[in-house]
């Protein structure tokens, strides 16, 4: 085992040494070394990712097809049955979100992103928060306190008010926010700028910090990323 490991290490070192000029070397590495993770490639750039085919595993896809109905049902059970067994909205929402993660890992995150639209995720999170606030505010409108379940106009108001808060409030908030975190983390940082004004704002900050020097792009970037350094040096010298 150690012998093969050292062999891989020297291989990786060779790739590192020849990385500046050789273009064909990473290609062969990606072709043959797929059963073993690349040792020293660092971040896979987007071209490389486009070049590698998406490895769909029959085992994972078939197993996920079998497991997800049960896991989803169990997540709903934990959510709806929180009054009589361990669990509740938070745990059940997390399990339901985990089912979506499972599907995304088996069938690809991009495909899942198209299947589960942004509208659904946002509607779950926002709707949950609104329902929780609404259930809390109905007794206020009827002259009581916030979340005073006795005043709700439903049969057995305390029990079903609590269940409504757990199921429609907490459960949907947690499920929606966790799915959203998953998708947005899988997409990563948007350096092109999701905000229209982000670049303009950055430029303003960059111009303000080094107005006295010769502003190149690299310097302004340094000044942004570490604003304390140059300012402290300037303050300390005189």
């Amino acid at each position: 085992m150690s012998g093969s490991d050292s062999g891989v290490d020297t291989d990786a070192a060779d790739t590192d040494a020849a990385d500046t000029d050789a273009v064909s070397k990473p290609a062969t590495d990606g072709g043959f070394g797929r059963d073993r993770p690349p040792r020293s490639d660092g971040r896979l750039d987007s071209e490389r990712r486009q070049g590698t085919p998406y490895t769909e595993s029959q085992v994972i896809m078939s197993t996920v097809k079998i497991v997800t109905p049960f896991a989803f049902t169990y997540g709903l059970f934990v959510t709806f049955h929180g009054g009589g067994s361990p669990g509740g909205g938070f745990q059940g929402g997390a399990i339901v979100a985990a089912v979506v993660f499972m599907i995304a890992f088996a069938f690809g995150i991009e495909a899942t992103r198209q299947w589960l639209a942004n509208t659904v995720v946002v509607a779950l999170a926002v709707g949950g928060a609104l329902v929780f606030a609404g259930i809390g505010l109905v007794p206020v409108a009827l002259g009581g306190a916030f979340l005073q379940y006795e005043l709700l106009p439903i049969p057995d108001p305390v029990k079903y008010g609590m269940e409504g808060v757990e199921i429609l409030g907490i459960g949907t908030i947690v499920a929606g926010v966790l799915m959203g975190l998953f998708f947005v983390l899988a997409k990563g940082f948007s350096d092109a700028g999701g905000f229209a004004d982000a670049d303009a704002f950055d430029d303003e900050v960059g111009d303000g910090t080094d107005g006295d020097g010769e502003p190149t792009d690299a310097e302004s970037l340094d000044g942004e990323s570490n604003p304390g350094g140059p300012a402290a040096a300037d303050g300390g010298e005189p």
Partner: peptide
């Protein structure tokens, strides 16, 4: 039910260090 998710997540991550996710 969820231990399976952890296993497939890590095992698919080890292929090209998340390049195929």
């Amino acid at each position: 039910l969820l231990n399976f998710l952890m296993a497939i997540a890590i095992s698919k991550f080890t292929v090209e260090r998340g390049g195929v996710l």
